[in-house]
Amino acid sequence: MYRFLARRREPPPIGPAGDDAELLAAVAAGRTEALRLLHQRHAPWIRGRLARRCADPDTVDDAIQDTFVAVWRGAHRYRAGEGEVAAWIWPIAIRRLISTLRRTGPAPPATPYDEARLVTESAEDAVLVGVEHGDLGTAVARLSPELRAAIQATVLDGLTVKEAARLLGIPEGTVKTRVMRAKARLRGYLA
């Protein structure tokens, strides 16, 4: 866009090359262009990850919007020593998804895994499962979808029972029992 008058005060440059922590610091200083770069970098994978937990694309988009607004407001709370920015944003995103669900009512269940479109596990894929989860991966694979979802929400996404209940659209008691049953099964499989 053509500039009518050149800017006199150039703020310290932040470019697509800047690392996440620098961008977040610029966001904390009120720079929207830094937030834009963070959004560009993180919105796609967050969308992918949220879409695995909520089948309604509009709800996911609303949650992403809320997430980055929360990042805008809370950027000053991030401390570089606390680990990766991505790991800092993800809990915000999953909790924003849960609040969005609270507003819009329970979501349709996450895309049911379509057996017909089952992707044949290649040797490479099998290796991946081993690398990332070892025996636990195979064990989790043997769980029923309900138990797996409960374990995923509470253990992998780190949600409280209450949050998991909201995300999965089931009562808190059910979450608790499913987590207990899933843990018992896993112990059995891994023993």
């Binding site: 994978w45 990850r49 879409a51 695995r52 990766e84 991505a86 790991a87 993800w90 895309t111 895994y113 379509d114 479109r117 089952l118 992707v119 596990e121 894929d125 991946l128 499962v129 690398v131 990332e132 989860h133 991966g137 195979t138 989790v140 694979a141 979808p145 797996r148 995923q152 992998l156």
Partner: peptide, 17 residues
């Protein structure tokens, strides 16, 4: 969303890092 749950979990835990 075309991966089975176990691969999904694997990819996710890799993406996180």
């Amino acid at each position: 969303g075309r991966l089975d749950p176990v691969l999904t979990m694997s990819v996710e835990s890799h993406l996180a890092r």
